[in-house]
Amino acid sequence: MTEQELVERAKRGDETAFEALVTDNEKRIYNLCRRLVGNPEDAAELTQEAFLNAWRGLGRFQGESSFSTWLYRLASNACIDFLRKEKRRQSLSMTVSLDDDEEERQVELPDERYAPEGELERSEARRAVAEGLEKLTAEHRQVLVMRELNGLSYAEIGAVLGLEEGTVKSRIARARNALRKVLTEQGNFFSERSSRK
């Protein structure tokens, strides 16, 4: 069944059809939220809210874009709103919060301490990149995650964010370079990796 057919059924209250839409989209929506807000708990909550809002708002959804585009937009907006509120709420103390973050992440990947050396390095590299992502602006993080993790095309990203394709292209280029800069400034990310080769 096509997405459109599933949406038509879901609009009439067919929860099974909506569940199929959930299954099709949940991994990408979760990962979008995960990388935008930085922790799994909030990401899970925001993912649930995105789908719930989609379910409630189905009556208003008129097919002006694809369902998944609309869903991305709901999730993305909810994450940005969440980040704004979090920012207002927190008073950031740089050194303290950085240490906390690192400890959290070590807890998240316990098994990899026992992994073969190559894999360990790889997982540390991933962690470094994840941390680097969090230092980007939400705008940059948004496009980079949609392109690199969600695999959305420039056109699709443009549809989600309401941007021209040209704007998407240049924003992604700037985001990539911003990430590169963050990782370079932070320490040895690139020099270590290239010296290993």
Partner: peptide
Amino acid sequence: LPELEEEVPDGLHQAIMDRI
């Protein structure tokens, strides 16, 4: 970057459907 993609946490799918 693509390797950062994670699986959906256990129970999330069901939690979504429960709320629906």
